[in-house]
Simulated scan of single mutants.
Amino acid sequence: MAKYRAAIVILTKNAMPGLRNVMSKVLAQQTPWNYEVIVIDSGSSDGTTAYLRELNAVRLIEIPPEDFGHGRTRNLGVHVADADFVAFLTHDAEPVNTDWLADLVAVAEQDERIAGVFGRHIAYDSASPFTKNDLHQHFEGFLRHPLIVSRDLDTARYETDQGWRQLLHFYSDNNSLLRKSVWQILPYPDVEFAEDQLWARSIIEAGYLKAYAPNATVYHSHDYSFLDQLRRAFDESRNFKKYFGYRLSPHPLKALESMAKLALQAFRQNLDSRFGTVTIKDRVERAAQRVALVAGHCLGANHEKLPVFLSTRLSLDSRLFRA
């Protein structure tokens, strides 16, 4: 029998200074049972590990950078956790309130067939209005479907509808929780990208359930520069093609058309006032990000046609695994 009802596993690398807020919220979680906090650091050089060693309630595991893997390192976290459920956060995802962990566990406890739960993301206050709107719209979309899903909801549609399959295997380890007994049967794949969605697909196809916990919310957002957006979109497209067979914006001429349309939309789109005042600077940055997104997707979908040196320079994943 596990010692704890739940454990929280956080992966860090050069996470300061934002990690202080994350850990403050993590250690303040209110639960009717005890939980443990495990942090796995892969070679920080900015004071992250020194700070973590000061936290008596945190179990710190340090690994060399070359041993890091998105699936491999999370498997290590689950393996060492003495808990029924294991929640994951990234070092830049801050729980909004002190009920975050209890909410995740409460959703998982609704049915013993629920293998994984993911929670909502909202943007930090400092994020652009467009980023705030994007995250709001994305997670609001899950409320239009059952909060607990499985392949059995519509088996025929699962076989024929790519969009439906994407919905069923959407999962984000920025804010998630898994049932360890299922993980012991279906651990994370040792891959360089999308370990969370690949794992979700494996549990769905094995007949388990996946749940959404809209009240288990974290602050997590990024306003990417043109180059960072291009590189992230490149990795996303290249790896979605590799692991899922999805081709994102594969045709250059159609991609150019989409770039023009999305750039124009950035200057015309009106947002809800709750997301803040939209400035000209916001619109210019949004247009650049949309162009970079489609360009990165197109390059990633056609990566095998690119020189190896160019693919390597475009990939953020390649830089991470060389670090």
Rank of each mutant, 00 (worst) to 15 (best):
S225M: 04
H220G: 00
A233Q: 05
F240W: 08
D228K: 10
L256H: 08
L230R: 08
L209F: 10
R231A: 14
R232V: 02
G207F: 11
D235V: 10
G207S: 11
A263I: 02
Y243M: 06
D228Y: 05
H222C: 04
Q229C: 09
Y208Q: 06
A255V: 09
S249A: 15
Y224T: 02
L230N: 10
E257S: 13
A233C: 11
A206S: 15
A263N: 11
S202C: 10
P252L: 13
S258G: 00
Y212V: 07
S221K: 04
A260I: 06
G245W: 03
Y212S: 07
M259Y: 01
G207I: 07
Y224M: 13
D223I: 02
R231C: 14
F244H: 12
L209P: 00
S225C: 03
L253Y: 09
E205Y: 07
E257W: 15
H220F: 10
K261F: 02
D223K: 01
A213L: 03
F234M: 05
K242W: 01
S225E: 13
P252H: 06
T217F: 00
K261D: 13
A216G: 07
E236H: 10
A211G: 12
D228H: 11
L253Q: 14
Q229N: 12
H222M: 07
R231F: 01
Q229L: 04
L230D: 10
L253P: 00
A213F: 01
Y246K: 02
A211N: 10
A200T: 02
R201G: 00
S202V: 08
Y219N: 11
K261L: 07
Y243H: 15
K210L: 10
A255F: 06
S221L: 02
K241W: 04
N239C: 13
E236T: 15
K254Q: 14
S202Y: 09
G245H: 03
L248V: 04
